[in-house]
């Protein structure tokens, strides 16, 4: 069982919702990324999504675009991101790390080499934003051979047929994009999300994480009522942006923010669990 599957199994056994923070590797400096990952784990992160910077992040909103530009200005490459994961793994053997990024840096590295080096560095899976299953056969096979999970996005526009198609190749968990738009966009319609998460779960057996539009403890709590995982990206990255000049303050600040979210999510989990017990 993969590290991601194990983690979701533990969460399910203890009836808890996962908290999955996203940061862009190397933002604002390469040196801060590993300490930040460690601080997020201490604050209650269950899985870490690590963004691999790409020059043309067409699915990302302005907050994550700027994070990407900060990281690229520091020369952060896919190889450098894998090295960060390797360093993180020296002290943390259990928290899953999922890379999130675009295909081209992987194309240039070479599929086989990427799969092999990512596994060797301690990466657990990847969400390649612009690689739908239809185009991904070769890379999917190589990643699976290395024991890596393939995490996919599902959108409000995904039809039942597409959800099933993605369910056939996805592993670990799926990431439901809760609003039509780019990362950091819009407000959340919890009822609509609940309905769609239910529809997804009726079609595929994987845990469903929900992201896009989760800004604070309140929205995190709402999503925790309906999802297996709460995914938070832009809300973290915008705080990193305001601290870009003082990176040493980032791990504590983000740790505190995640602790608030963790508390809000746990409160929901408790009430759901106790209601279920009654």
């Amino acid at each position: 069982m993969s590290r991601i599957a194990q983690r979701f199994q533990q969460l399910q056994d203890s009836k808890r919702t996962a908290l999955i923070p996203f940061i862009t590797a190397g933002d604002p400096t390469p040196q801060i990324t590993v300490p930040l990952m460690q601080a997020m784990v201490s604050a209650g992160a269950d899985v870490i999504e690590l963004g691999v910077p790409f020059s043309d992040p067409m699915a990302d909103g302005p907050v994550i675009q700027r994070a990407t530009e900060r990281a690229l200005a520091q020369g952060v490459s896919l190889t450098a991101v894998l090295e960060m994961v390797r360093q993180f793994r020296e002290h943390d053997g259990t928290t899953p790390v999922v890379l999130m990024g675009y295909l081209n840096p992987i194309e240039v590295m070479g599929y086989a080499q990427f799969a092999q080096q990512a596994a060797a560095a301690g990466v657990d899976g990847a969400l390649i934003v612009d690689l739908p299953p239809e185009e991904g056969h070769d890379l999917i096979a190589l990643m699976k051979a290395q024991g890596l999970d393939l995490v996919y996005l599902l959108a409000p526009t995904s039809t039942a047929a597409r959800i099933k198609l993605i369910g056939d190749v996805a592993s670990g968990f799926v990431y439901y994009v809760s609003v039509k738009g780019v990362t950091g966009a819009g407000h959340l319609d919890t009822a609509a999300v609940a309905a769609q998460v239910g529809a997804i779960k009726s079609l595929i057996p994987l845990p469903v994480g929900v992201g896009f539009g989760i800004k604070d403890a309140e929205t995190a709590a709402k999503v925790a009522q309906v999802a297996d995982a709460v995914i938070v990206g832009s809300a973290i990255v915008s705080q990193i942006e305001t601290l870009a000049a003082t990176p040493e303050r980032i791990p504590d600040t983000i740790g505190n923010f995640l602790a608030e979210l963790r508390q809000a999510i746990d409160a929901v989990d408790c009430s759901v669990t106790s209601r279920a017990a009654e």
């Binding site: 699915a59 612009d130 690689l131 739908p132 185009e135 959108a155 526009t157 597409r162 994009v177």
Partner: peptide, 12 residues
């Protein structure tokens, strides 16, 4: 060629 896009664009 192909369709290398985020899931949100596949249906449109």
């Amino acid at each position: 060629g192909g369709m290398f896009v985020p899931e949100t664009l596949m249906h449109p």
